[in-house]
Design a protein around this nucleic acid. Structure first.
Lengths: 141, 141
DNA sequence: ATTTTTTACTTGCTTAAGTCAAATATATAA
DNA sequence: TTATATATTTGACTTAAGCAAGTAAAAAAT
């Protein structure tokens, strides 16, 4: 890859690390972290997944994830029931309370996106969303 | 902003938080963090800046930044000298050793970018760099 | 069939990276 | 000359995460 292109990517990473950092800081005032919100959102779209399945998207340390799941269960946001087919696994799903918290955190995410794009006009916002979608597709390819 | 566009951005943030996370993990094996590397790179391009000036790019906690600077000085990577005009400030610059470490960390960043884009062909790599550059310009606007 | 290896999850321990609040010193404004 | 703002530092604390070792169950190899 050309050195120029590499530098563009490095440069972006440095900048965006700060964007993500600010995002994480904004979640501090809620009872859940940005990562926990991500976990809840995965569980919302894939109910009855095991921790391992969820972790295909998140790539977290297994031990850490296990503790997060324990917290979420303790707080009544998720339900854990041992799989009958494979007793090593626990199938996880959001409780009603979990769904409410998920929605609340999603609202927080939206608000933060709106706030952080406040300086852009409508066309620019649309372009940003479109660019990021393309990037996402490329990195997941 | 349209809900669809908001969700695209939220979605990207979730994904890219993991990319940044992996990047930070990769720096653990070096003696400096991803953030410290960023600080060194700022100092490389803007020698004789104060901590506050550097922090315009980084938005870190001042106390944390102060400690990082202390570490960098202790390790002989930067030189701190009190400004004569304004004795509250300390002008910071890379030492020769600091420049060497900066280059080493930059090489690490490059290697990680190359590695993380390994699954893309040349055109896709070029497109990725170009998209990220555009995103950067938009978020900085 | 039973030993070996792999997989899913848990637990104990540690650390990096940061936050928050209070203090000091200097500079600027009232 | 008093009050306010800015630049930096220090102390105390948090949290998000990693690593290593363990348990239990399942799958593969013998």
């Amino acid at each position: 890859m050309e050195i120029d292109d590499i530098n563009k990517i490095i440069d972006f990473n440095k900048k965006y690390a700060r964007v993500i950092g600010a995002l994480q800081t904004s979640f501090l005032s809620s009872d859940y972290s940005f990562t926990e919100a991500h976990i809840l959102s995965e569980l919302n779209f894939k109910p009855n997944s095991s921790a391992t399945i969820i972790n295909e998207q998140l790539h977290l340390d297994e031990g850490y994830l296990s503790r997060v799941m324990k917290k979420l269960e303790k707080n009544g946001l998720i339900l854990k029931k041992q799989s009958l087919n494979d007793k090593r696994m626990y199938l996880l799903s959001l409780t009603d309370k979990g769904k409410i918290v998920y929605k609340k955190l999603n609202k927080l995410s939206s608000d933060l996106v709106i706030e952080s794009t406040d300086h852009l006009n409508d066309n620019e916002k649309k372009e940003l969303a479109s660019l990021l979608e393309k990037v996402k597709k490329l990195i997941l390819k």
